[in-house]
Design a protein around this nucleic acid. Structure first.
Lengths: 240, 240
DNA sequence: CTGTCAAGATGTATTACTAATTAATGATTA
DNA sequence: TAATCATTAATTAGTAATACATCTTGACAG
């Protein structure tokens, strides 16, 4: 169930080139509308023009930059960025990330997941249910190990989206993924958690019982708990 | 309100290279797991290796191919494709497209939009409302001109997503966009349509009145009508 | 004021080459 | 025999120098 973290190729000697430029743009260091000084970048990053161009091609594919003859290569307005791209979401969490991004991710999640469990209740196969059970087991086994707990949480939500049998919804995992991971990163360090297994099991039980409404209710419970957890941590950290 | 159709750069002499390879893969002509014969492609498309590699870099950025040294450049499993990318969605409608894709797009739309109007009812600014009114005017003016009607429809749904003030939801436009366009393409040719303005205006009125529930109801009405329209056409075309 | 055309800047493409990576193979050793 | 390590070969990654194509600007003509 493990998969590559990035979609673009990051292999090779200068595989970080994309990453470096992307982070600068997403962090606002290079503002939308600004034209990139290719020659300077080339000198600074110490790569050939071809390698640099390939990196910019990746960013162009994600709607972040655009190259126009005579005008140069410039950063596109933020509205054009493929914010639903996993890489783009991850890059935004680099450093001085807007903390509201987490809220936006959660908002999307709280729209998608209740609807997803309804669909899953109607469509889940035995395999899907087995995958959900597996995620619950993983979650139980991860008790006390934060990293494993995050992984188990992700497995659960991925299995849930897969059970909708709509590949577009399944792809929403990229939105959930970073959101869940960042939330967990934020929340851990607080007091020890309640056992997450029962609340998650309630969702699976409802899906298995083909009870869409119960599944949705259970899911909304999970989402509310997530909000409370984050609020608690933020309150501790000076109510910002 | 007009924007570029593609995110990747399609300018230049061999700008179609990406498109050609993408369509072949998305149409299933080159199956997931298959390795691409770079040399053959280069000869066939009559482009230099560098140009071809830049094209493949775009596809890699969208999760469609992956290049590994010694193993070659191969098509990734469909589950890894960035299906939420506007280009990827559009490419799928090229030729022998799976007609169920339209249903999947509609399913996502029918999850997102009712939730979006609720948020819009709470958050829409005067500018947002003006944009929605503008789209209604556009729709009224487009009577009898299918292309203009589609454009107006898109403007409306874009304005709606923008009124949620969540940039991630706003980006869902790429999912709606092709879905709406394809649906309209399918539906036109049937009998002349009822005036779409009143049903859309009901949504705007409810948002203006800050009535989230009424807005959601009106939106669900629109979505149901969309389903009926498509079903009618499919029924005519031999109930496939 | 408007349309046309030329100049030049800049991205786009080509070519030919070297370097890095890694699966597979075969040799060596415990 | 079985495990490990070095070699090889295939293929992508990266470099560099040069030529091509195209877009924008601005001058000029109508």
């Amino acid at each position: 169930m493990r998969r590559a973290l990035t979609t673009y190729a990051r292999r090779g000697l200068h595989g970080q080139t994309v990453e470096v430029i992307a982070r600068r743009i997403l962090a606002g260091e290079i503002a939308p509308g600004a034209t990139l000084d290719i020659t300077a970048l080339q000198a600074e990053l110490d790569v050939s023009l071809t390698a640099l161009r390939e990196a910019l091609k990746v960013l162009a594919a994600k709607g972040i930059v655009d190259a126009r003859q005579k005008r140069g290569t410039f950063v596109r307005p933020r509205a054009d960025w493929n914010l639903l791209d996993g890489d783009v979401i991850r890059w935004q969490f680099a450093e001085g990330a807007d903390p509201r991004l987490l809220d936006k991710l959660h908002e999307v999640r709280s729209i998608i997941e209740p609807a997803a469990v309804r669909l899953a209740a109607g469509r889940a196969t035995d395999d899907d249910l087995a995958a959900l059970d597996g995620a619950l087991d993983e979650m139980a086994a991860a008790k006390g190990r934060p990293a494993a707990a995050v992984a188990a949480d992700l497995s659960f939500h991925r299995a849930l989206l897969a059970a909708t049998h709509n590949e577009l919804l399944e792809r929403m995992e990229v939105v959930m993924e970073t959101g869940l991971a960042e939330r967990d990163r934020l929340v851990h360090g607080g007091e020890p958690h309640d056992d997450p297994v029962p609340s998650h099991r309630a969702v699976v039980d409802a899906i298995r019982a083909r009870d869409a409404t119960a599944a949705e209710t259970a899911m909304r419970g999970l989402l509310e708990k997530a909000v409370r957890d984050v609020e608690k941590v933020r309150g501790q950290k000076g109510n910002r």
